[in-house]
């Protein structure tokens, strides 16, 4: 089953790609084997994150970017993240509605993804899904974050670079700029630039960027003015995007970021795995209650017990 799926994915077969993402979303046991099997095929795609407040027109802008990239014959995959309801777990996923003219284009793959309780603007499954799309041969993989604001920094740890989309007239742009979202952007877009106040917003961004501590390599963050509805400024944006990526490759930023990404991912997954085991250990039988009683009755001292248990957990892990 996995062999067939892997084969389908590396041949860019839609059904296999889609099913693999479902496996990741549903956290099926075969997931790890799948990702490992795909791993040698990854590393070619460029990974772009798009973030920005609701109403900034991220999806419509993305729709235009896809149009441009398709003219350049690039294959594109999109992961569009929407929030799951914290109450019911349900979600309405509608971002692809704004990209519907690409639905029947075989060179475009769009997948809607519910956050399923994951915080940080993306879904828990996003990072591994990117690997699947990478292995499937997409040239550009775009992650569109939920877009609710300040806490959406996780996309930084998945994407090669992040585009921050802002619009004039939402009233909260100054706050957003102050709140540190600016830190995550590599490329800035003032969308709906046909509106009044667009230039003022641009000036404000320039000012905040000026305050920003110099980038690792002294790269200047570009600002683009676009209108997704009027289809203006898109070509410049896409050119700028490619130039920026090229520079990142040349000056070593990309390599560093990818190294940082692997670092963070390793730390995160290793910790998560051990933590899961620890939780299981603690919740087995009434272990915890017994130890608590032992400590409260002064039968043992806390650190003595803790260290004994840690050794026990590690032993169990080793046997596994």
């Amino acid at each position: 089953m996995i062999g067939k799926l892997v084969n389908g994915i590396i041949h860019g077969e839609t059904r296999s790609i889609a099913r693999a993402i479902s496996w990741i979303e549903n956290d099926v046991p075969q997931k790890e084997e799948l990702i490992d099997a795909l791993f040698e095929h990854t590393g070619r795609a460029q990974i772009l994150g798009i973030t920005g407040p609701p109403g900034s027109g991220k999806s419509s802008l993305l729709d235009r970017i896809i149009e441009q990239e398709r003219k350049r014959d690039k294959k594109i995959a999109v992961l569009a993240i929407d929030p799951s309801s914290p109450f019911t777990g349900g979600a309405i996923l509608g971002d692809r509605l704004r990209m519907q003219k690409h639905t029947v284009d075989a060179g475009v793959f769009i997948r809607s993804m519910a956050s399923r309780g994951h915080l940080g603007g993306v879904a828990g499954a996003t990072s591994d899904s990117v690997k699947v799309l990478d292995a499937a041969g997409f040239d550009l993989i775009v992650i569109e974050t939920i877009g609710v604001g300040q806490t959406e920094i996780e996309v930084m740890n998945i994407a090669d670079l992040v585009m921050l989309v802002l619009v004039p007239g939402l009233g909260d742009e100054i706050q957003a700029l102050k709140a540190g979202v600016m830190e995550i952007g590599d490329i800035f877009v003032v969308n709906k630039a046909d509106k009044e106040e667009a230039n003022r917003l641009k000036a404000e961004i320039e000012y905040v960027l000026h305050l920003k501590t110099e980038d690792e390599k002294g790269v200047k963050n570009p600002i683009f003015m676009t209108s997704a509805t009027e289809n203006t400024g898109i070509e410049e944006l896409v050119n700028g995007l490619h130039e920026y990526m090229q520079r990142m490759g040349e000056n070593g930023t990309l390599r560093e970021r990818r190294r940082r990404r692997v670092t963070l991912e390793l730390k995160k997954i290793i910790t998560a795995k051990i933590e899961a085991h620890v939780h299981k250990f603690l919740e087995t039988g009434n272990n915890l209650d017994v130890w608590i009683d032992q400590i409260l009755r002064k039968k043992t001292s806390p650190y003595k017990l803790i260290n004994e248990k840690v050794i026990q957990i590690l032993k169990e892990l080793k046997e596994k």
């Binding site: 839609t14 889609a18 479902s22 019911t88 349900g90 996923l93 029947v104």
Partner: peptide, 28 residues
């Protein structure tokens, strides 16, 4: 259906059968 806890992909009006099927497959 969202309120009942499902994940709903909403495609909207005026869709061709071809587009619906493509979407159904991509969205699994």
């Amino acid at each position: 259906l969202k309120d009942a806890g499902y994940e709903v992909i909403y495609m909207g009006i005026r869709q061709s059968p071809e587009a619906i099927v493509k979407t159904a497959i991509q969205e699994d």
